[in-house]
Amino acid sequence: MNFGIISFPGSNCDWDLYYAIKDELNESCKMISSDETNLDEFDVILIPGGFSYGDYLRSGAIGSLASAMQAVKKIAKEGKIIIGICNGFQILTESNLLPGSLMVNEQPEFISKWQNLKVENNQTIFSNKFKKNQIVKMPIAHGEGNYYCDEETLKELESNHQIVFRYEDNPNGSVNDIAGITNKEGNILGMMPHPERAVETILGGIDGLTLFQSLKNTNSEVIK
């Protein structure tokens, strides 16, 4: 599989992702400038955490307008796999590729800690190597991770099984404990926790690697 990581000015988890994919998942991986206009060569696009464009205006708002994000919209429609982590999740909601918004944490402070998550849906291309309701552990590091959407959208997310991960002991006030969601079609994932920081035992856990391995598990069905 060809992985591409979009590096925006202000991204700071891009090389962590690169290391996770290249050295731990053992897949081909390329760093892409946010000015790139053609992403056709990639099977999976990763949008990393950080503070793209200084998070000016709103988190992810300026990042969502970068040329590379227009290219992401194009290949997302074709069914390619897109994963946005932390600031990447914020960019995906600002791009309207995922519903809802990430607001300031309920207690307005930056939270950085290991967080338990429940695998709500293990029937996605991102989570098929987990067990349903499995409790997994990944780091979170954000000031604006409080997921919000209106009630109608929330009902849709629930009934379409778009919620992949929920927080145990909700740290930030997210509605229905939402930590990660997919789009309706199931090829785009946005999540606040950092799987790329949980790919080696020495880091504190490997549940993040299991997420990336799930992608390989369904390779033949998903990639046309």
């Binding site: 205006l57 708002a61 918004s101 959407c149």
Partner: peptide
């Protein structure tokens, strides 16, 4: 288009 996130 930009200044306001109409969701919130």
């Amino acid at each position: 288009e930009l200044l306001v996130n109409q969701n919130m």
